[in-house]
Amino acid sequence: MTDSEIIKLILKGDKEKFRMLVEQYQQMVFRTCMGFLHNKDDADDLTQEVFIQAYQSLSRFKGEAAFSTWLYRIAVNASLNKVRKSSKNLILQRIDAIFGTEKTKELPFLPSDMKNPESILIRQEHVEWIRRALESLPENQRTAIVLSKYDDLSQKEIAEIMNTTEGAVEALLQRAKKNLREKLSAHGKNK
């Protein structure tokens, strides 16, 4: 059964068919959310919000683009909104961090080859820094890099989701990579 056939059935009242779309696209939406949020629990919650939002707006889906493209757009917008809200709370979080009330973030990136606690700490610091470098990119560059690296989409697909041209996406990706390279170089030189 195709996506558009499933959507027709849902719009006729067969709500349970939406589960088929969820099961097919949940990992895709989750990966996109993860690319923006870098936290599994937050990405799970946002994926849930994205699908509920998609269900509520399903009658407005015209079928001009693929359902996945439409879903990506919702996921990207929801992620950017979430990030904007989070950055507003950043000052409060920093105050918490200064006074030591914030719990240290658990990092699931501990490779087996790193037995030395000092190396682990250094690596965790780098990982946190890399995430911040990604977060510091302008929204459109960040969207392009997330869709390219996390979702492994082609420039054509990214252009369709971002409602722009392939050339613009190529330029965005180059600028994003340059920005990241510069940030990593500056960090690397300081270390």
Partner: peptide, 18 residues
């Protein structure tokens, strides 16, 4: 981060939310 799997009960959570 790409390799992390979403919550296995996410579909059930979403349907309950709906």
């Amino acid at each position: 981060e790409i390799e992390i799997e979403s919550d296995p009960f996410l579909a059930t959570r979403i349907m309950a939310g709906i």
